[in-house]
Design a protein around this nucleic acid. Structure first.
Lengths: 231, 231
DNA sequence: CCAAGGCAAGAGCACTGCTCTCGTTTTTGT
DNA sequence: ACAAAAACGAGAGCAGTGCTCTTGCCTTGG
C-alpha cells in the first residue's frame, strides 16, 4: 500500500512473489498434480515449514496461482483488444481477443488447466477469484456491447421455454443486452473454451493440423452466434 | 477368452474388476488427485504391494479407468441414439445423444474430468484409449451421415485458407463427408464439450440456472453448424 | 529499552507410490 | 505323476509428501 514499507513487510512480499514464481516454474514443468511445497521450499533454500508462514496450505498456494493466471489471461485479452487497429471492425476485434486467449493458453497449458480443466481439490476459490476470472469475458462482452451500440448485432431468436432464463441472465450479467444476446453470449463463451481446451489438452492430436486457421474459422462462427457481425 | 478358465485366471479377472470398482468409488468421492493405491488395497483387504500384480502403477490404474469411462460415455451415446423414437428427425436424434453425454458427465463428474479435463500425468494413454474414445463421436458422426444421405445437411462454406485442411480432415475422419461438413463437425465436437465442461466444472454457477433447457438450445444451434437440420 | 509478535529451522506424524524379498500356491512341461 | 516355472500375497523398507509443533532468533511497536 505505502511506498516506504518496513523492511520486514518488503521481505514478505518479495518472498511471497518468489514462492509463487518458483511454484509457477514447477507447475509448468511437472503439472499441478506434482507441485510440491517441499520442492519449492528446497529450491528457494528454505525449509518446508517456513513456507507455511506465507501460504497456509498447498491449496492456498494453488489458489494464488489461479488468481494470478486469471489475471494473466484477462490482461492478454485486454491488451489484444487495445492493440486492435483503429479501423478494426467488431468481428476483427473479437477474433483478435480470442486468439490472444488461445495463445496464452498454449503458452501456459498447465496454468490454463488450473483455470478451465478439472477443478483440483473440492472447490478451491469461491469468491476470491471471481473478479479476475471475469476480466477476459468482460473484454468480449465489451465488444458485443459496441457491436450492439452500432447495430452490428444480429442474433437468433430464443425459444419460448428459455425466454425467462434469457431475461434473468441478461439482467444478471449485462442489463443493457437484449436477452437473446445474453444467451448467445454465454453459449459462445463456453464453446470458445471448448475449442481452446481441446487444442491445449491434446484432443486435436492427429485430427486438426492447421490449428490457428481452424480456430479463427471457428471463432468467426461463434462471433455470429453472439451476434457480433463484421465491420 | 474361454468360458472355462482356470481358477487362477478367473480370480485374476474378478480381482481386477474389484480393484477398478473400488478405485472408481474412491474417484467419485475424492477426485483423481487423491486416489490412493494403498487406500484401494486397504479397502479390499489386501496389502498395497499385492495390487501391483494387477496394475504396474497408479497411472496404469487411472488409464484403465479412463478406458472404461470412454466406453461408458460411448455406450450412453449409442443407447440414446438407439432409443430415439422411430420417427425422430436427425436433429432430434442429435439432441438426444448430446443430452445423454451431458447426463453421463453430470452423473460421473470425476470420470468425465479424467477424459476431458486436465490431462493428469504427462500423457497417459496414447493409442490404447483411441478406440473407446471414438465411440461417442462415432454416434454423432453417424447422425450427420444419415442427415447427409437424406439431404438433411446444409453447411456454411469454408474459407479458402482452410480448404486444404478441410479436405485432409474429411479424408481422415470420414471420407464420405464433404470437406465443409467435416470441418463443421470437428468444431461442433469441441464446442459441445465446452458446454458440458463448463457445466460440470462449475463455470455456470450463478450464471446459467435452467441448464438443461440452455443446453438443448445450445446443441440445437450446434446441430445447425454441423449441418444437421430438422426432420 | 523491552515485551510482543513474526520468522526460520528442525523434529516428527501420518500418509503416499513403489521395490524387493520370501514363503506359498497354482499352473505347466515332461 | 512329478518337478520346474510362474504367479501370488504378505511384509519390510525407501524416498517422498502435506502439515503440525516446538524452539530459539530477530525485527518491530510501545
Amino acid at each position: 500500500m505505502s511506498a516506504t514499507q518496513g523492511a520486514r513487510e518488503r521481505a514478505r512480499t518479495e518472498i511471497t512473489a518468489a514462492i509463487k514464481e518458483e511454484a509457477r516454474r514447477q507447475l509448468a514443468v511437472e503439472g499441478a498434480a506434482k507441485l510440491s511445497l517441499r520442492a519449492v521450499a528446497r529450491e528457494l533454500g528454505m525449509v518446508s515449514s517456513a513456507l507455511y508462514r506465507y501460504f497456509p496450505s498447498r491449496d492456498d498456494l494453488l489458489t494464488a496461482l489461479i488468481t494470478d493466471a486469471y489475471d494473466a489471461v484477462g490482461e492478454a485479452a485486454e491488451k489484444a483488444d487495445a492493440e486492435a487497429p483503429d479501423g478494426a471492425g467488431h468481428r476483427e476485434r473479437w477474433v483478435q481477443v480470442c486468439l490472444a486467449v488461445r495463445e496464452w493458453a498454449l503458452a501456459h497449458p498447465q496454468e490454463y488447466a488450473l483455470l478451465y480443466g478439472s477443478p483440483v481439490p473440492g472447490y478451491s476459490a469461491p469468491q476470491t477469484t471471481a473478479v479476475p476470472a471475469a476480466r477476459a469475458v468482460t473484454v468480449l462482452m465489451a465488444i458485443a456491447r459496441d457491436a450492439h451500440g452500432s447495430r452490428g448485432l444480429a442474433v437468433e431468436r430464443v425459444p419460448v421455454g428459455l425466454r425467462g432464463e434469457a431475461e434473468r441472465l441478461a439482467a444478471d450479467i449485462a442489463p443493457d443486452f437484449p436477452p437473446a444476446v445474453a444467451i448467445g453470449f454465454v453459449k459462445v463463451w463456453a464453446e470458445l473454451f471448448g475449442l481452446i481446451s481441446f487444442e491445449v489438452f491434446g484432443h486435436f492430436h492427429r485430427v486438426v493440423e492447421e490449428r490457428e486457421a481452424f480456430f479463427v474459422h471457428a471463432v468467426e462462427g461463434l462471433a455470429g452466434v453472439a451476434g457480433v457481425l463484421g465491420e
